[in-house]
Amino acid sequence: MTMDIDLIFKIAAIGIIVSILTQVLSRSGRDEQATMTSLAGLVVVLMMLAQKIADLFDLVKTLFEF
């Protein structure tokens, strides 16, 4: 059992990069691309997080004997 600090940094880094890209794209008049970038960042983080949530549910199921 380890505390995965890297994941926190990864999510924060993706958030900051997406935020900067969104700002740049929306200021240059490409609002649609800015929205798509924001959506892509969200999907990437969700894919990273899905595994963690599955791990948590598996752990709860195993420990509490479901």
Binding site: M1, M3, D4, L7, I8, I11, A12, I14, G15, I16, V18, S19, T22, Q23, S38, G41, L42, V45, L46, M48, L49, K52, I53, D55, L56, L59
Partner: peptide
């Protein structure tokens, strides 16, 4: 702290960050 920074621009990613940390801490 990172969530406060993210929350200004990307509210949805802040929620995901919170979710990730909650999952990890609950597992611990």
């Amino acid at each position: 702290v990172l969530g406060l920074t993210l929350g200004k621009q990307e509210k949805d990613l802040e929620v995901l960050l919170t979710m990730a940390v909650c999952c990890m801490v609950t597992m611990i």
